[in-house]
Amino acid sequence: MNLESKCIQIRKDILFEIGTLGVGHIGGSLSIVELLVVLYNKHMNIEPKNPQLAGRDRLIVSKGHSGPAVYAVLCDMGYFPKSWLETLNKPGTNLPSHCDMKRTPGIDMTTGSLGQGFSCAVGIAKASKLKNDGATIYTIIGDGESQEGQIWEAAMFASHHKLNNLIAFTDYNKLQLDGYIEDICSISPLDKKWESFGWKVINVKNGNCCKEIDEAIIEAKIASKPTMIILNTVKGYGIGFAENAKTANHSMTITQEMFEEGLKELEEKL
């Protein structure tokens, strides 16, 4: 299966997870599908049968509410059986709405309180440098999450400590829970902000394009400083009702009709 087809399959799994429950964080899950698929299938040094492998590459999804997307990809990689996907957010589940390292194999850090995961990722990158194990640490932050002050504390630390083993992504879908970022509290110019904090910055025009993401990661891996890859994405990308809901897609109710319509739409693309 090529990566594009895999992305459609992963979207089906996300829709299945959230649709089975009837509500969930679909917008910010769909926007990072291509990124997760490229990372896990082309770049990360991991062993799904040995989730705690020392020296493995790690991914810290600081925008922890994108758990459903991460679970779909981890499941596809073989970290846990497919039957888990229908347990999202149900009593006793190992797949809670926000990423939880104590519950889900393959999750490298518990996240959900925005700003913290990124800072933890910086700590992990520092730890890897101290151990000198050659791991690459990946982390994804939300564009709205960039309003958290802690992001910038950690950004300063990472460049000061020359953590070139750290590759970060901003899911720049321009939306946050309450509306458009530009209307609430602008974060632009995002690239200049990161540059001024001492980071290498790569702008990916289409953040929902596997090829563009792949090329950016290859470039980031040889950087002499930490890299921020800004992915211009679409929140809710790939499923019509989610994409069209725009500011309402952060966490939305999904009726049986929407569920079926979305599945049909994705199957037609396969």
Binding site: I60, M101, D108, M109, G115, Q116, G117, S119, C120, A121, V122, G123, I124, A125, K126, A127, S128, L130, K131, G149, Q150, E153, A154, M156, F157
Partner: peptide, 22 residues
């Protein structure tokens, strides 16, 4: 490691380092 005047960052850097075995 002196993280500078950034206690929130210090706490989470520590959590990340702990997850790495420190």
């Amino acid at each position: 490691i002196n993280v500078g005047i950034a206690e929130q960052n210090m706490a989470c850097i520590a959590a990340g380092m702990s997850s790495y075995g420190f």
